[in-house]
């Protein structure tokens, strides 16, 4: 196991990821009709600042309505929060990446304000992607091919791959420990320390034939690299988008189970799927 794979380090990452998801759930619970994306982003920032977060992989994002499917996005500036107001039935996505205690989390939380059948269906269909990614990473398939398989599955489900809209079209990127500095500026919403780490990885990877960005391009034609990957499959259907984002641990272990695993299985979306499953089982029993 590599350094990032050691149990106490993983514990640190896990606690930051939990903190980030707590933040997302707390903010999501406060969203009301009329709240703007900017306000939602500020609420996340303040919530985390109050709990000791001083540095960010990237500042919190919030997308409402058809912006969850990145409709009409052409330049990266469009990712930043706008004055779009939330309305009943609208889907929303909160995406936040705090750094705490030197560990980075990068999470995405999708929800909707009131009932929205399309959004429910998207969330349900995300589940197989989580399983597919883990299975194929354990098989050590080249990242680029896994990317294509995910995209193909999305198309079969009737949706679009919307993570293609992210910079470099990434479905995931590496995260790592970040040195804690008293001064931690950010440029274009990204923390400079984290960017520095990413750039270092990119340089090293370039020499060794891998990349910290998991993209559809040739530079991702390599087996999964040990380390922590923030994986974010993003589905889009007409004006509705949904994603989850969480950390995948990849190690150099020979054992399939240990070679890759999700950092934490007790997350909102995983719980939601388990509950839905339990409901279905119950109905089946009742029917029987």
């Amino acid at each position: 196991m590599t350094v990032t794979g050691s149990p106490e380090v993983l514990r640190g990452f896990r606690s930051v990821q939990r903190l980030a998801y707590e933040c997302a759930e707390a903010v999501a619970a406060q969203l009301r009709p009329g709240v703007t994306e900017r306000e939602a982003a500020r609420m996340q920032r303040e919530w985390l600042r109050g709990r000791g977060v001083r540095d960010w992989f990237h500042l919190p994002f919030a997308w409402f309505g058809d912006r969850t499917a990145f409709a009409g996005f052409r330049v990266p500036l469009q990712f930043f929060p706008t004055n779009r107001e939330l309305a009943p039935g609208m889907p929303f996505i909160l995406d936040l990446a705090p750094v705490h205690g030197g560990c980075t989390a990068d999470v995405g939380y999708s929800g909707c304000l009131g009932p929205n059948p399309v959004h429910d269906r998207l969330m349900r269909d995300l589940r197989v992607h989580r399983e597919l990614i883990l299975r194929e990473v354990r098989e050590r398939r080249p990242l680029r091919e896994i990317y294509e398989d995910v995209e193909r599955l999305m198309v079969r489900q009737g949706y679009h791959n919307r993570h293609r809209a992210y910079p470099f079209g990434v479905i995931a990127h590496k995260v790592d420990r970040v040195p804690e500095r008293r001064f931690s500026p950010h440029v274009f919403g990204f923390g400079t320390q984290s960017l520095k780490g990413l750039a270092k990885d990119a340089l090293r990877g370039h020499r060794e034939g891998w990349s910290p960005l998991w993209s559809p391009y040739r530079f991702s034609q390599h087996p999964p690299r040990p380390g922590l990957w923030a994986v974010e499959p993003h589905l889009g259907f007409r004006g509705t988008g949904a994603k989850f984002e969480e950390l995948l641990v990849v190690t150099d272990s020979r054992n399939a189970q240990e070679s890759a695993f999700w950092l934490d299985d007790d997350l909102p979306h995983v719980r939601r799927w388990a509950e839905a499953e339990a409901d279905r089982e119950q109905e089946k029993e009742r029917a029987a």
Partner: peptide, 12 residues
């Protein structure tokens, strides 16, 4: 594929 399309059509 056709079934998926029809199902999604009803939703939109």
């Amino acid at each position: 594929g056709a079934a998926t399309t029809a199902e999604l059509c009803r939703m939109i």
